[in-house]
């Protein structure tokens, strides 16, 4: 199982199916920005998103989207603030800001957010 740093360095992709994305690492998600929705509440609430971390991946379900591929344009990305599971979550140096790009054939590109792009954790 790769960690976030390795996934970014090796350009490993995730997956997307409908309103579900799968990330090839184990992470604590702190914040998600998708479209104009800012999601920080990951409790069992039906609004927003829910997260499940397995031994092999982290998956996120977006309740307010039926199909991410259809609903996000080619210039839009999903932005995440997250921490590798097991790392000290309270140390800001461990926080990552990544963007997810929806590609065809269920491919999900995972990249660090460029410094030019606006993202506030």
């Amino acid at each position: 199982m790769k960690n976030i740093k390795e996934v970014l360095a090796e350009n490993i992709s995730g997956l997307h199916y409908g309103n579900r994305i799968l990330l090839p690492f184990k992470a604590e998600i702190l914040k998600i920005v998708i479209g104009t929705h800012i999601i920080t509440d990951f409790s069992k609430n039906i609004d927003g998103a829910s997260i499940r971390v397995t031994d092999f991946y982290t998956e996120i379900y977006f309740y307010e989207y039926k199909n991410l591929e259809e609903q996000l344009t080619k210039y839009e990305v999903i932005k995440l603030a997250l921490v590798q599971q097991g790392e000290d979550i309270f140390n800001f140096d461990n926080h990552f800001a990544i963007e997810l790009k929806i590609e065809s054939k269920h491919k999900l590109l995972i990249e660090p957010i460029p410094t030019d792009l606006l993202f506030f954790e």
Binding site: K31, V33, I38, K79, L118, E121
Partner: peptide, 11 residues
């Protein structure tokens, strides 16, 4: 403007 700001993660 609101939309651009929210896309940047600002409430």
């Amino acid at each position: 403007v609101k939309s651009i700001v929210e896309r940047a993660g600002i409430e």
